[in-house]
C-alpha cells in the first residue's frame, strides 16, 4: 500500500506534464480546426461558382467575384474584371448551350483551392471558327483559385484545348504540310 502512495504523486506529476503539452496541442489543433473550416468554406465557394456558371446566374457570380477579379491562362489569355468573365462565359455557352462542369476533386490549402474538373458539352454553334458539329465533347482541366474574404480573387486555368479541338474534328498538322 505504501508503494501506491509513492506512485500516486508521480502519476499526478505526469498528468500535469501531459496536461501542459495537451494545452499547447489544443491551441494548435484549434488553429488547425479554424483553418480547416476556412478551407471547407472555400471549397463551397468554388462549388457555388461552377454552379452559377452552369446556371448562368450572373447575380450569384457577381457575389462570388470582386470587381478586380483576374483570370490567367498562362501565355494564352489574361484579363482583369469580373464582367469579362461573364462575356467569356456567354460566348462559350452560345457555342455549347448545354455545357456543364463536373468537379472531380477539390484540394484546399490556406487561401487556395485546386480544382480538377471536366466539362461535358454539345457543340451546337460556331466555336473558334469551327461550324456546329453537334458533337458531344468532354474537356479536362485544372483550375487554381485564390480566395480572399469569401470571394474568388484569382483563377489560373490549365485546360487541354487540343483535346477539345480534336473532338471537334480538327487535326494536328505540321505547318509546312509535308512530313
Amino acid at each position: 500500500m505504501k508503494q501506491l502512495y509513492i506512485i500516486l504523486p508521480l502519476a499526478l506529476i505526469l498528468s500535469f506534464m501531459v496536461g501542459f503539452q495537451d494545452r499547447e496541442a489544443m491551441t494548435e489543433s484549434e488553429a488547425m480546426k479554424a483553418q480547416a473550416e476556412v478551407e471547407e468554406q472555400n471549397k463551397e465557394i468554388v462549388r457555388d461558382f461552377f454552379k452559377a456558371i452552369d446556371e448562368r446566374n450572373t447575380e450569384k457570380l457577381m457575389e462570388l467575384l470582386p470587381i478586380d477579379f483576374s483570370l490567367t491562362s498562362p501565355d494564352i489569355t489574361e484579363f482583369t474584371g469580373r464582367v469579362k468573365l461573364v462575356h467569356f462565359r456567354d460566348a462559350f455557352y452560345e457555342s455549347f448551350p448545354d455545357a456543364s462542369h463536373t468537379i472531380d476533386e477539390l484540394i484546399a490549402e490556406g487561401d487556395k483551392v485546386a480544382v480538377k474538373l471536366h466539362i461535358n458539352a454539345t457543340h451546337e454553334a460556331e466555336y473558334e471558327g469551327i461550324p456546329a458539329t453537334g458533337k458531344k465533347v468532354t474537356q479536362y482541366g485544372m483550375h487554381i483559385m485564390r480566395i480572399v474574404d469569401g470571394q474568388i480573387k484569382e483563377i489560373w486555368v490549365f485546360e487541354d484545348v487540343l483535346g477539345l479541338m480534336q473532338q471537334l474534328g480538327m487535326e494536328l498538322k505540321p505547318k509546312e504540310g509535308e512530313k
Binding site: 498562362p74 490549365f158 485546360e159 484545348v161 487540343l162 479541338m165 494536328l172 498538322k173
Partner: peptide, 13 residues
Amino acid sequence: NVLQLMQQLGFTI
C-alpha cells in the same frame, strides 16, 4: 495547353 505547345513547335490545327 498541349495545343499551345504544338503551335510553338510549328504545328497547326
